[in-house]
Design a protein around this nucleic acid. Sequence first.
RNA 1: GUGCCUGUAGCUUAGUGGUAAAGCCCCGGGUUGUGGUUCCGGUGAUGCGGGUUCGAUUCCCGUCAGGCACCCCA
Length: 491
Amino acid sequence: MAKKDGKAKAKTSKKSPNIKKPAKAVSPKKPTPKAPAKSKKDLASTKSASRIKMPHKAVSEALKVAPQPSKKSLRQGLESVKGMHDILPKDQPYWEKMRDEVRCAAYFYNFSRIDTPIVEHAALFERGAGETSEIVEKQMYFLKTEDKLVLRPENTASVARAYIEHGMSHEPQPVRLYYFAPMFRYEQPQEGRFRSFHQAGFEILGGESDPIYDAEIILTTFRLLESLKLSNLSIEINTLGSPFDRAIYRRKLVDFLKNKKLSKEVHAKLDTNPLRILDSKDESVKEILKTAPSILDSLSASSSAHFKAVLEYLDTLGLPYTISNNLVRGLDYYSHTVFEIFSSDFNFALAAGGRYDGLVELLGGRKTPAVGSAIGLERIVHVMKAAGIDFNNKNKPKVFLIHVGDLAKKKSLALLETLKNANIYCKEALSKDSLKAQLKQADKEGSHLALIMGQKEAFEESVIIRDLESGIQETVPIDKLIEKLHHFLKS
RNA sequence: GUGCCUGUAGCUUAGUGGUAAAGCCCCGGGUUGUGGUUCCGGUGAUGCGGGUUCGAUUCCCGUCAGGCACCCCA
């Protein structure tokens, strides 16, 4: 018995590491005998078989009968989650470019990086962004823990929290912070909208509630988008006034809309969040709004002056903006300036932001003026792709190392190290042993030069440098290789 | 949360109530050391679950995922 079990084990364990070779060599037509990989399960099922001394045929029959879960069914439930996506190597150049430009903008406009945790207390957003906002009301991912924790749906509240928690009000004011981070919102995916997505953001907290900071945030955001080669950008800007102004305006608006013919949904907003009716896409609502009172008429003198000053700064900078009195933001903490930046042909904002003078106080800090913006990075990539913008650097010269024979293969890793130390970028396909296959791959990778070390070269301590375009090649001693390569790569 | 559309190989697409085709990609080969062209061969799929049926990839239902729009938003 013991012997038999031992044999059975030995057999399967022998099989499993070699699966690839026999599968290829034999290439059986039926897929069933090909999947002995799950050795534990198989052992269990064959155990009884080996006890009864089943002949080989019978064993294979039994294996056939055993239900094999299909690969697809194994994948079931393991696919990426709705609205959440992988960022694949081919798209990484876009992301690297964005990281670079965000860092660059942050450097020049003097923002310091802050990273806050992905998980925060739900209360942070409920209090900060406002319980009437849809983001907080419906779109937060709650963790199944005893304390009410959520995946952050936005980052401004987190930054404000960190500002308070780390006593940043004691640093020279204002404090300028930026981030580049993933956010999570539970909503229906569609063009430019995901459940997990990334935002880059800039925040200026503290100091005076000076309109020049509003302009600076808009400037930074706008210039960043420009540096990503986006064109046809436009800024829509509005003011919500002070909370007091807004309360007055709210009453005026409700009075105006009260007696109008409105759909149920719109009518419901009259009680909860009437300003939201302003950015309705419904044509009939838009028609009605044409004669609605404007927020501008409800502004106090100082609010009005603030807005005017922001616009003057933008004029001075030559930034293209349009005033849109129907622009209302989704988060309750905004006051005074709000803005969105669009690219023509897309009906979603690439970036948005505004002033949130009340937020820090609302979260338990001292009264702190603040203004900030956030940029939707997946949206940026989407627009860049649509515009045919491509950051792949295809002109970079590429060297490809090829080996033939055992000795050369043994030496190849050390050779790669030599190249790396000389700062020469080199690709390889070390597991392929045929010269042909390696050259083929070098070609597919778009390599310019191939370094070929065959048996002879490995023995003689030399390497062939082959120009893959011209086909011209030259044998050089290894100690002259770096020098030669630099020469080749220059010309 | 609501509505519409779509799920066939890694990708792009055929097709059928009765053995699921092709192109590209990938892997191997065209005699032992030279790629891009070409030739030959190979791996690999009906999203998942249920129902109707002798039999479903096809018809029906559910579900999951993708797309689009509403809502909302970066």
